[in-house]
C-alpha cells in the first residue's frame, strides 16, 4: 500500500495500539495489497480510554471484559464479585493494554 495512506491510517488510529507496535504495523501495512484498504477503513477499534471508564464504573461486574470481547474472563469476574474485588482493581491498570492488544488482534485478522 502507499506510504501516504498507511501514514494516514497510523495517524488516525495510533491511540488504539501500543506505541511499540506502531512501527511493525506500518511496515506490515506497506507490504500488503491495496485491495485491503477498504476493509481496513471499516474496522472499528475499541477506545482504551472508554474501556478504562467502564472498568472504573462496572469493573466488579466484569462489564469491561465483556466490552473488549473477553467474554470468558467477564463471566469469571461477574461470578466472583470482580475476583473478590482484587481482580477488579488490577484490571483498572490492565484494561488499557488489554484493549490495545485486542485491537491489534483485530487488525491482524484483516492484514494476515
Amino acid at each position: 500500500m502507499e506510504a501516504q495512506k498507511v501514514d494516514l491510517f497510523i495517524m488516525t488510529n495510533s491511540k488504539f495500539f501500543e506505541g511499540h507496535h506502531l512501527q511493525a504495523i506500518r511496515d506490515r501495512l506497506i507490504e500488503i495489497d491495496d485491495s485491503k484498504w477498504s476493509m481496513l477503513q471499516t474496522l472499528q477499534f475499541k477506545d482504551p480510554t472508554t474501556s478504562l471508564i467502564v472498568s472504573l464504573l462496572g469493573g466488579s461486574l466484569g462489564i469491561d471484559r465483556f466490552l473488549i470481547g473477553d467474554t470468558g474472563l467477564g463471566i469469571g469476574k461477574l461470578l466472583t464479585c470482580g475476583g473478590l474485588g482484587i481482580w477488579a482493581i488490577i484490571d483498572w491498570f490492565m484494561i488499557m493494554p488489554a484493549t490495545r492488544e485486542k485491537n491489534l488482534q483485530k487488525l491482524q485478522m484483516v492484514v494476515m
Binding site: 466488579s60 461486574l61 464479585c81 470482580g82 473478590l84 474485588g85 477488579a88 482493581i89
Partner: peptide, 8 residues
C-alpha cells in the same frame, strides 16, 4: 465479611 467492591 463484605469484600465486594460494588456492595461496599
Amino acid at each position: 465479611k463484605v469484600i465486594c467492591l460494588f456492595k461496599k
